[in-house]
Amino acid sequence: MQQTFNRSKSVFRYAFLIVFSLMMVFPLIWMILSSLKTTEEIFAVPITLFPETLQWGNFSGALEMAPFWLYMFNSAFTSICIVILQVVLSSMIAYALTQLKFKGKSLLFNSILITYMLPAAATYVPSYILLSKMGLLDSLTGIVVSNVASVFTIFLLRQAFMQVPKEMIEAARSEGANDFAVLTKVMIPMCKSTIFIAGLIGFVSMYNNYLWPSLIVKSEDKYLITVGLNRFFTNVGSFADTWPFIMAANVLTVVPLLLLFVLLNKWFIKGISDSGLKG
């Protein structure tokens, strides 16, 4: 009796999960399939799921219409720079927050957390003014500089650093390590999985970042992929015959992230479950 109840419960649970997983993944599948269809197939009624012949030409067509490779390079390049700087700076702050004793430590930590509560849009105007005074508008440097501080990374690393057993740090100290050595020789190596995850999540969110870069970058050769994609979409217009190209461009954009996820999905899942946070 109990067993049949449990069984029907788990059947229900799986059915629920499958339906919602399909709902989540369907747009992605639809995008990939559409990138290989003709316009007629995309708009066909009734809906056809698979293209009759695979239209690989859509990809070369899309690449001819806009320099997507350049956009992708800009995105990847700024994301990597940002991630490196974020990790370096955040680990230093997290070290101070967990290991050093100073006045106003909790005040500092709380004010860092409070900035996380602020809607990002609220900081756009002051950030824009700051960047313009620094002469960094419309430059990749500007994108990097304006993103180097990440509250999420600081928080994640602080939590990880707090897990490092006190004796390890004390052992290092009595062996002659100063703060810098404790950070680089003990804390960072011991938390490398968290740091890796922080970097990964940082990379993905920077690669996907749209609104802020779209505000500060004006010249086409500095477009990030997100901005480039949007301009492409608006420039060519959403006329029916460009849909396959738009879809192909989207697929190109997403491929690096998908590859990253396929290769490192273990780490993504670990990152989300370890930190108890959604990235």
Binding site: E167, M168, R173, S174, E175, N178, P189, M190, K192
Partner: peptide, 20 residues
């Protein structure tokens, strides 16, 4: 500071660095 006292310490839970 600890590092300049000329002492060596052994801890209860060994405090070995797991990554080394």
């Amino acid at each position: 500071p600890s590092k300049d006292r000329g002492i060596a310490m052994v801890f209860q839970n060994y405090a070995l660095f797991p990554h080394l």
